[in-house]
Amino acid sequence: MLAKRIIPCLDIRNGRTVKGINFENITDVGDPVEMGQLYSEQGADELVYLDITATHEKRKTLPQLVRRIAKNLNIPFTVGGGVSELSDAEVLLENGADKLSINSAAVTQPEIITKLAGKYGSQFVVVAVDARFENGEWEVYVNGGRKPTGRELFSWVREAEERGAGEILFTSMNHDGTKNGYAVEALKRMAAEVSIPVIASGGAGQKIHFKEVFEKTEAEAALAASVFHYGEIPIPSLKKYLAGEGLPVRV
């Protein structure tokens, strides 16, 4: 039985795990490798590391960090944040990243998905999509949710799949940070429209939100950050709860 995955997301700046709201009030919450190992021991199924360091500094620090994570972690991890060229991707993969998440670059130059999937295989390519629901339509945003693109969400996700994405990581900007639950309706439609796995992101605040997203949609995984970092929802108790609700999880 394939388990539904629980994925903590760690934001990285200058090699440290940080937490902030909309890039403001950023605080240091720990060492990315130590936090990753702790999550792994607690039963996280996978980790996502998102580098929010300024691009020019990232070129130096990120490959070293990825190498350190790959050396120490015994579960899969995805790295994202500013991958804009094939060469960036290559360096991260050579240092042991299991998957890459591409966001803005995928929208502005979609052929990067095709190239990455062709060279390394679809399983390396996670296309991350940030979108906002407004005036009856879901619009894709880039640059960390700051720039609207005019692109409609579901057609974009289908294109990403056709170009070779292996998974979609969808963050609803309307739900992110609210702790009121995932964007269940949008996720339901998305997971039904594509045949690759969809990872739900944005809105987790309580255990029941994870149950809802797995019961009401075909999302394969649920990602969250603050509820895990601040210990609001310990992963072992979340897994136990989901198993008790009859959901397939790895315990």
Binding site: L2, A3, S195, I196, E220
Partner: peptide, 10 residues
């Protein structure tokens, strides 16, 4: 089902 088969299975 979703393809690729990604994740933890028994």
């Amino acid at each position: 089902l979703k393809i690729p088969h990604v994740g933890w299975n028994q």
